[in-house]
Write a protein that binds this DNA or RNA. Structure first.
Lengths: 250, 250
DNA sequence: GCAATTAATTGCGCTGGATCATGTTACCTG
DNA sequence: CAGGTAACATGATCCAGCGCAATTAATTGC
């Protein structure tokens, strides 16, 4: 369905019903934690996954839902939200194709601490958490790769803790934009385009600020020529200066 | 050497040179990730570890040091500090006996993002990170246990991100005291005593506040009968009310 | 026992950013 | 095409908590 929205962000082109067995195999082969596994083993693993498409804005699971499955983004983007009592969510991460989410916990009674929501048209694969644990037990290389991914996520979370403790809102917003540019950025005429619909609310939730503060700061960045932006999109026009702001050198 | 300090916190009694082979074996047997391994396998693993004693305040490794080893606390307490440009550290975690720290990373060129420092007289075991990865590859149960620990740490870090984004300093300080009570608390006449030297600076660094704010808040808690405290110690006298404050019900 | 030092406490002024409100603009839908 | 809505931008006000400083109390070392 054609949108009139003027945005440089290209929509996800795959429709949910095209999340085929071939796509699944392709995605699973590309996952860092299945790298190096024999193709026939990956095919066997593929058989244990389910897939499902989600519309933009659709919730994959809610915080408080019992943990049953581990998910992998096959296509699209997924956001992980932690709720606060004040109703202002914290946006913990934006997940791109190949990344897993959901809980790996061995505990039977556990619940998801976060809500997962499709930011774009998304296809996600899922597998029972217990089965995934069996795969990790059968293939130590998978478990080691998961350890590495968890390690990197913990490092990023600790960095965010440092930012929230000691950096200004402007620094955090600059940092957030840079991280999004690193992960989702595509070179375009407008600069390094963050290739995903991105509202001021999203930026605020990632940077630990309010929408008004995010809006003011993005307007200043725009006026200063650091970014280009419109509704639901941002492109980095001067990453070096943004980096200087994020690091407190400006 | 006798101290005049009036504190209910008992010092660590072990001296570094008493970090014996037997203690090591005892500690390794008790580690969650070696649970279930045959005793002779643990003995073989024990041979790969080194141990070293650290005085209170001594640095185990600095942020920026190249990653070489994985550490385990055998006795005492270790704090993990992330530095900020303003000189005010973020205290990411206090590690108790049985907990690992250092980097598990596969990357050859990586450095520690944090500084590890003995909070008390401490004995720490260490092993080459590569060797530990070999152990994880050889024993999937070890890798799975490490995944579970990383999972729990990530959850705690995300919770702290939420607190730093949306909670007041008073709520965060109450939460910090409760977490320390859960982890290091021992019932005593003064209440649930956090059995570790704990300065106002430590509480501030864990709660994302300044020393002055932490001191004001602890003074208020003390006057309200929620805690008992003195120099370098805190005991929880009314955890239920602290919980109410931490959760924003008060 | 005492001087020096450290850690904690308390006071005061300032400000970043939250809160609340309103205005503007782009987009959607009938 | 027009009315309505959502997203963004901006203004005004307020305050939590920081920064700085002074004071007090506990501890250390001689």
């Amino acid at each position: 369905m054609v949108s009139h929205r003027r945005t440089p962000v290209e929509p996800e082109s795959i429709t949910p019903h095209l999340c085929s067995l071939d796509l699944r195999l392709h995605i699973l082969k590309g996952l860092p934690f299945f790298a190096g596994l024999p193709e026939e083993d990956i095919a066997g693993i593929n058989a244990r996954f389910h897939e499902r498409g989600y519309a933009p804005g659709e919730t994959i699971f809610y915080a408080g839902d019992p943990v049953k499955r581990l998910y992998v983004v096959a296509s699209g983007k997924v956001k992980l939200l932690r709720h606060t009592l004040s109703g202002q969510d914290v946006l913990l991460d934006i997940l791109a194709p190949g990344e897993f989410f959901g809980n790996l916990s061995a505990l039977g009674d556990d619940v998801y601490p976060d809500t997962a929501q499709a930011q774009t048209l998304t296809c996600a694969l899922s597998i029972e958490a217990d089965v995934f644990r069996q795969i990790m037990a059968a293939y130590p290389a998978v478990a080691l790769a998961v350890v590495d991914i968890m390690n990197e996520r913990l490092r990023a979370a600790h960095e965010m803790m440092r930012q929230l403790s000691a950096h200004t809102a402007e620094q955090r917003i600059a940092h957030t934009l840079l991280k999004l540019g690193e992960k989702l950025g595509q070179p375009a005429d407008v600069g390094l385009l963050i290739q995903m619909p991105l509202s001021r609310e999203d930026v605020a939730a990632m940077a630990g600020a309010t929408v008004e503060t995010a809006s003011r700061t993005l307007s200043q960045f725009k006026k200063a020529g650091l970014i280009r932006s419109g509704r639901q999109w941002v492109a980095l026009a001067d990453p070096d200066r943004l980096r200087a702001i994020a690091e407190g050198d400006a």
